[in-house]
């Protein structure tokens, strides 16, 4: 399969600010591609450039192998977008909203009707067809937003933080829906600040910062890129500085913190790190409580790569 999206050396400036700095990206057809980055990293600018909503200074953007321009209507027919902000008409009912947006892509009345019904069923809004958006809860509104973006059965769908401010049930329903669309053949580009969601559904993840691509790969590949491979936590009382110094000497241990009777040991590489730690306490005749070993999460990866300082 070819690439759904190809971005090469994209440069975008806002006066003095370099929003995208020779940014490149490839999304293969059939992938669920996660685009991560702190606020102001250039995610929205990238998506807007890809969608031709924004002009750029330099670079090349191709969708399904063809150059993407504002009047690339044939390409646009295959693209769906679900934005962070709900984009529906307040005056139209659920059915009318989906029908309107589907009708912008599908001319055949029978086919349009079928697609609209399917989209409403897909997001589980069958009982709300005649409801106005203002009568819907936050979760239902998000689902309507999704239905409007995918009703025309696009081959490439952008989801920009679609689960913001929704309850766990609705979030789960939305994520299941996205996976279902992917199974049906759609390529997904997903942006979110919820790392667990990205970890759950994305087959490939790109982390960007300062308008640049700083890391790309599967979640496993990304986790291997960082120093920390295992975090071991031990509940233990009355440890001395001498003990802590000895723990630091254990192979693969690169950081140790002790506070409030809890010891946190960060390891980099190696196997059986937890056994070596427990052995240390047994050999020194120190009583320990609960012991926990945790693999790094995508959140750890994200924070290590992009830094922990606050962004705007």
């Amino acid at each position: 399969m070819g690439n759904a999206i190809e971005v090469k050396n994209l440069v975008k400036r806002y006066k003095e600010i370099l929003a995208l700095d020779h940014f490149s990206l490839e999304v293969a057809e059939g992938e669920v591609f996660g685009l991560l980055g702190p606020n102001g990293s250039g995610k929205t600018t990238t998506i807007n450039c890809i969608l031709s909503l924004l002009s750029y200074d330099k670079g090349e953007i191709k969708i399904f192998g063809k150059e993407m321009k504002p009047d690339s209507y044939e390409l646009k027919k295959n693209i769906g977008v679900v934005m962070q902000n709900v984009a529906v008409f307040d005056e139209l009912t659920v059915y009318e909203n989906v029908d309107y947006f589907c009708g912008l892509y599908i001319s055949d009345k029978e086919l349009k009707k079928k697609y609209v019904e399917e989209a409403i069923e897909f997001v589980g809004l069958e009982d709300y067809k005649k409801f106005l958006p203002k009568k819907l809860s936050g979760g239902l509104l998000r689902r309507l937003n999704i239905a409007c973006g995918i009703a025309h059965k696009p081959k490439l769908i952008f989801f920009d933080e679609p689960t913001v401010a929704v309850d766990p049930q609705s979030r789960n329903k939305i994520l299941e829906g996205i996976m279902q669309l992917n199974k049906e053949g759609a390529t997904i580009v997903y942006t979110s600040h919820y790392m667990e969601e990205v970890e759950q559904i994305c087959s490939k993840i790109l982390i960007m910062d300062g308008g640049k691509n700083v890391a790309i790969g599967t979640k496993e590949e990304l986790k291997k890129m960082i120093k920390n491979t295992e975090t071991i936590t031990v509940d233990v009382m009355n440890l001395t500085q001498e003990h802590i110094a000895k723990i630091k000497e254990i192979p693969h241990v690169y950081a140790v913190k002790y506070a409030d009777n809890q010891l946190v040991v960060n390891c980099s590489g190696g196997k059986h790190n937890i056994v070596r730690i427990i052995d240390f306490f047994q050999n020194n005749d120190i009583a320990i409580g609960r012991v926990n070993a945790q693999q790094p999460t995508l959140n750890d990866v994200f924070l290590e790569i992009t830094g922990k300082e606050l962004r705007d």
């Binding site: 909503l53 044939e74 912008l104």
Partner: peptide, 17 residues
């Protein structure tokens, strides 16, 4: 208008002039 409202943005993405 895509730069004024989310609705405008969604409509700007449709395959029509």
């Amino acid at each position: 208008q895509g730069n004024v409202s989310p609705l405008g943005m969604r409509r700007c993405l449709s395959p029509n002039s």
